[in-house]
């Protein structure tokens, strides 16, 4: 996912990697200019539209403050985190474990491959019925939907990472006295696959924020629910407010995770 662009900087596909990695004034300036242009365009268009189609930026800012001041925002956020966090953690952990196990063991892979192919294309949203039936309309149900999303991203990232581990490196480890699958996986396979695994985790974290809206579609409270309710009432300013909240949350978590990733992968 990360590509070396040749000048020593690593740029990720969303373009944030380089911007956050080290502060480059020229690039930051371009970014600010882009945001200003976007907001200006939005404002311009909003002048010719009724508020229920597209509210102007100041209106949204006002709503943002109102929602924040009333405590609505904090409440919705608190609710969403209660399924986002467990869903992400559980899905990520299981996805990595399954990906490593299947990529490492031809036996497991042979047994599971057809099942994986059947289950893989199922969109998490299609599992709402199961979420309700198995867990109910609660945080556990929403966490289930989110976990499914996190699972597949991490499954494939870990699978690819483990597949890419050089067999020569494993030979070296064996010749240095490493015995048994578990020990090989722990001391060579996992650290060698870590760059791919962490890229998967990072992608998964972002995907899970998107899934928060889908996971709350059947009535679990949170940011997504708030967006859906506001949509039904044509409160577009509220919708945009919470979209902004989601974006900011994603950015915050992503920056934090990237900092961790850079530390862990300092050897690269």
């Amino acid at each position: 996912m990360a590509t070396d662009v040749g000048d020593g900087h690593t740029r990720t596909e969303d373009g944030f990697g380089a911007a956050i990695g080290e502060f480059r004034p020229k690039r930051a300036l371009l970014g600010v200019a882009g945001i200003v242009a976007f907001v200006a365009a939005w404002w311009l268009v909003s002048l010719f539209q009724p508020a229920y189609v597209l509210p102007s930026p100041p209106v949204v800012v006002e709503t943002f403050y109102a929602e924040a001041a009333s405590g609505e925002m904090a409440a919705a956020l608190g609710q969403s985190v209660r399924h986002w966090l467990p869903g992400t953690v559980v899905g990520t952990t299981l996805g990595i474990a399954a990906g490593v196990a299947l990529a490492w063991s031809p036996l497991l892979d042979g047994v599971a491959a057809p099942t994986v192919r059947v289950l893989r294309p199922v969109p998490p949203l299609a599992l709402v019925g199961f979420a309700v039936a198995w867990f109910g309309i609660n945080h556990a149900g929403a966490a289930f939907i989110i976990a499914v999303g996190a699972f597949w991203i991490n499954f494939y990232a870990a699978y690819g990472g483990v597949e890419g581990v050089s067999s020569d490196l494993l030979d070296v480890a064996r010749s240095l006295g490493v015995q048994g699958d578990l020990e090989l996986v722990r001391s060579v396979v996992l650290p060698a696959a870590l760059p791919d695994v962490t890229t998967g985790v990072r992608t998964g974290i972002g995907r899970c924020w998107m899934l928060v809206v889908a996971a709350e579609i059947f009535g679990v409270p949170g940011i997504g629910r708030r967006i859906l309710r506001a949509s039904n009432n044509l409160q577009v300013d509220v919708v945009i407010t919470y979209i902004l909240v989601l974006s900011l949350l994603f950015l915050l978590v992503d920056v934090a995770f990237r900092a961790v990733q850079r530390r862990v992968l300092a050897w690269r």
């Binding site: 020569d168 490196l169 064996r174 010749s175 006295g177 650290p191 060698a192 870590l194 050897w267 690269r268």
Partner: peptide, 20 residues
């Protein structure tokens, strides 16, 4: 009958563990 610590190997491509 298999690799082990009694047989030290050095390859052309170094094959160091890059994370260590």
């Amino acid at each position: 009958d298999g690799p082990g610590p009694e047989l030290g190997v050095v390859f052309q491509e170094y094959l160091l563990f890059p994370w260590r």
